[in-house]
Design a protein around this nucleic acid. Structure first.
Length: 270
DNA sequence: ATTGCTTCCTGAGCGC
DNA sequence: TGCGCTCAGGAAGCAA
């Protein structure tokens, strides 16, 4: 499940490997994978000159003012290859470069998308996203203001991309455990001290995960098909017992697995 | 306005 | 061996 550290890892690796390459053609192998502006000729998108990330979106920009905006959802992968891998059963699209190398978009569960559009329309995809947790905008003041009027749980707040962009289920579980806050707490009951802790721990966990090239629980792979290694450092997600030996409680909230330790994570503000 | 449920999809893992 | 069931999950879309 690619979240911010996984997407950022892919962006860093793409920046080392496909900058300057000219897009020769793009083929879609499954419907509803590519959404392209009708006015664009996919054989004339130009050469790649910048690759960046916003939330969980990968933005590949070309020198002809076009953007490829990719979302991997749960099982999407971008794999750089010289030849098409015949064992890849779930290739949804292939971007072929002028030098004959290929960037393959694999996606078992088919929810991932590639939007191809003129740069002027970039905001149509990105405008709904909230603040970046690794940017200075993610601070006590911003968070306090956002949390005040939220009645939903702190977990659903952190998962809401319109509030904070880039966090997913695994990191939200880890962040709340690190802060000692129960995922079931109402967002507007988070105290000043806890907000400051949320800012610090979120940044810390994302940075460490990034140093380990992200978390590979099942599907996430880097562009050379290698796994990340932060799964070895998870403290609550998928665990039976927390570090202190307490039983971890597993629940579901809005369809997602939630792990928390009732002893280490406060159910109520103090 | 805000919130939370349903939907999309496939493969792994399980019990029988 | 194979069947049917459950689970994994991001975010759009919709209903309350």
């Amino acid at each position: 499940m690619p979240e911010l550290p996984e997407v950022e890892t892919i962006v860093v690796e793409l920046n080392k490997s496909i900058i300057g390459k000219t897009i020769a053609h793009i083929e879609e192998y499954r419907k509803n994978t590519i959404y392209a502006d009708e006015s664009l000729d996919l054989g004339k998108l130009g050469a790649i000159n910048e690759i960046s990330r916003r939330g969980k979106y990968i933005i590949i920009a070309t020198d002809r003012n076009c953007d490829l905006i990719i979302h991997l959802r749960m099982t999407g992968k971008l794999i750089l290859a010289d030849l098409t891998d015949p064992s890849a059963k779930h290739t949804r699209a292939i971007i072929t470069f002028a030098d004959k190398t290929k960037l393959m978009f694999d996606d078992v569960r088919t929810f991932g998308t590639i939007h191809i559009l003129n740069r002027d329309n970039r905001h149509e995809i990105l405008c709904r996203l909230g603040c970046e947790p690794l940017s200075p905008d993610f601070n006590y003041g911003t968070l306090k203001q956002l949390l005040e009027r939220r009645k939903s749980s702190i977990k659903s707040f952190l998962l809401d991309q319109r509030a904070v962009a880039g966090l997913g289920n695994i990191y939200v579980n880890e962040i709340l455990f690190a802060c000692g806050i129960s995922p079931h707490r109402a967002a507007n009951t988070i105290t000043e001290k806890e907000i400051r802790l949320l800012v610090t721990k979120t940044r810390q966990i994302l940075k460490i995960a990034l140093e380990h090239n992200g978390t590979s629980i099942s599907d996430y792979r880097r562009i050379d098909n290698k796994t990340g290694s932060f799964q070895n450092f998870l403290k609550i997600y998928g665990k039976d017992k927390c570090l202190c030996g307490h039983q971890v409680k597993r629940t579901k909230s809005s369809g997602r697995s939630t792990f928390h330790c009732p002893k280490c994570q406060k159910e109520k503000e103090v």
